[in-house]
């Protein structure tokens, strides 16, 4: 069981923004995180960026996972800005799916913590999300 140092499960939002509707990857990842002992908020596709910000805040999650298979990663910088504007800079954001190499650095520059490509293993994903959740918990205001 993977819980944070304080024994409390990491809380993760797994979602999709933009226009694409392929969700096999995000469903499998959500199940991985659940099976690793995390609490996962899972949404359908096509979330509006303000809705993702509202969910991130209301659910007080540690990590937001964005799945993108058809270029939706191109609007992730907009999401990053919106999260910062809402005072949620401590929340870690990861992107998974099809992201061309030449656009990975663009995501990192905009504050994305990690980009997972097809073929990433369960272990790799779970360990990275766990670690990022712990970082987020440390930076987050207590109340």
């Amino acid at each position: 069981m993977h819980a944070n140092g304080d024994g409390i499960p990491a809380k993760v939002l797994v979602t999709k923004i933009g226009l694409d509707g392929h969700d096999r990857g995000s469903r499998v990842v959500a199940a991985y995180l659940r099976d690793a002992g995390m609490e996962v908020i899972y949404t359908g596709p096509w979330q509006q960026i303000p809705a993702v910000v509202a969910l991130t805040q209301e659910e007080d999650v540690d990590v937001v996972g964005i799945s993108s298979l058809a270029t939706d990663h191109l609007i992730v910088p907009k999401l990053m800005r919106a999260l910062r504007d809402a005072g949620l800079a401590h929340v870690r954001v990861v992107v998974g799916g099809i992201v061309p190499d030449d656009e990975v650095s663009m995501l990192h520059e905009n504050g994305v913590s990690k980009v997972f490509h097809p073929g990433s293993s369960r272990e790799e994903i779970v360990a990275a999300v766990q670690q990022l959740a712990e970082q987020a918990r440390c930076e987050r205001p207590e109340i």
């Binding site: 499960p9 609490e39 908020i41 659910e59």
Partner: peptide, 12 residues
């Protein structure tokens, strides 16, 4: 009950 994890889907 196995992992202690959960998928919270109601709010969808």
């Amino acid at each position: 009950p196995l992992s202690g994890g959960a998928v919270l889907g109601d709010r969808v």
